[in-house]
């Protein structure tokens, strides 16, 4: 009895701890500031879209939104492409090279990507890659390659050797085997990894903060940070901006829950 009660109370508390702040944000995006401060959890007096209109009008969220989409989509695409190629090679190579490559990329797992901010910054200044979406994409690819290769290698290793050999007999090259056998088989793993990478790229702050200063190149997390900048603004606008920034993730989460959970936990389990 006691166990059951404790269990239910604890479970409810944590569920509320997640739901209450989320509701405050969602409801707040329809409210005026005064309402947010006094009754954060009440339904808005009227479901007004003024905040969204204001945000579009003044905050210019379209550009950062577009930038975030460009950076995330290209980063994920190229990381998956490069990582799957490398992972396939590693999983198929029984030679020393395979081992060496694997250890090389494992090094990247041990060193947090954040420690490279200074050399990356100076390198990018030299290459004129600051204030460039391409620069952000390159950094994202480099930072997420190790973990992606790690996840995908373990997946490719699980593909039974016979499946490759069937194709190999026909004299197919590696690239063809990769394309016609490994790639189709690995679709679920690629999807999960892709989501995992998308969340990382979509939400990253540190590198954009350092590399992007130009208004028209800012990504969403940077724009959110600007909201709390030297020239202050209001919580109603802030919550509205948070809503806009989170919508793609929430939609993807609802639509592809399983892949999502698989992706975000694969990163942990494999890494």
């Amino acid at each position: 009895m006691f166990y059951k009660w404790t269990k239910n109370i604890l479970l409810t508390t944590f569920a509320l701890a997640v739901l209450v702040p989320s509701s405050i944000v969602v409801l707040g995006s329809f409210k005026k500031d005064v309402e947010i401060y006094t009754k954060p959890l009440a339904l808005p007096k009227s479901w007004s879209l003024d905040n969204f209109r204001n945000l579009i009008h003044t905050g210019n969220v379209f550009t950062p939104f577009k930038n975030s989409v460009i950076v995330a989509v290209f980063s994920v695409f190229f990381t998956l492409l490069f990582a799957s190629l490398a992972a396939y090679a590693i999983s198929r190579m029984t030679t020393v090279t395979g081992r060496v490559l694997f250890i090389l990329f494992s090094l990247g797992l041990a060193i947090p990507g954040q420690v490279n901010i200074i050399p990356i910054y100076h390198l990018f200044v030299k290459l004129h890659l600051t204030n460039s979406l391409l620069g952000l994409i390159l950094v994202n690819i480099a930072l997420t390659l190790p973990i992606s290769i790690f996840i995908l290698t373990s997946f490719f290793k699980d593909i039974p050797r016979e499946m490759y050999e069937v194709a190999g007999i026909d004299g197919a090259g590696h690239l063809r085997i990769y394309r016609s056998i490994a790639l189709p088989l690995s679709r679920p793993a690629m999807g999960a990894t892709g989501i995992f990478l998308f969340v990382i790229c979509w939400n990253d702050l540190l590198y954009p903060l350092m590399l992007i200063t130009q208004l028209d190149k800012k990504t969403l997390p940077l724009t959110l940070i600007d909201f709390r900048g030297e020239f202050a603004t209001s919580y109603s606008m802030l919550f509205t901006a948070i809503m806009v920034a989170s919508i793609p993730m929430v939609v993807m989460y609802i639509a592809m829950q399983r892949t999502f959970v698989a992706g975000l936990t694969a990163g942990a389990v494999k890494g």
């Binding site: 492409l81 490069f82 990582a83 190629l85 490398a86 396939y88 090679a89 590693i90 490559l101 090389l104 990329f105 090094l107 990247g108 060193i111 990507g113 420690v115 490279n116 050399p119 990356i120 390198l123 390159l138 950094v139 690819i141 480099a142 930072l143 390659l145 190790p146 290769i149 590696h174 690239l175 990769y178």
Partner: peptide
């Protein structure tokens, strides 16, 4: 096949490190 990955990784991860 691992060349693109190795190239990007070496240039933007190992070299900076």
């Amino acid at each position: 096949m691992a060349i693109p990955a190795v190239a990007v990784y070496s240039f933007l991860y190992l070299y900076p490190a």
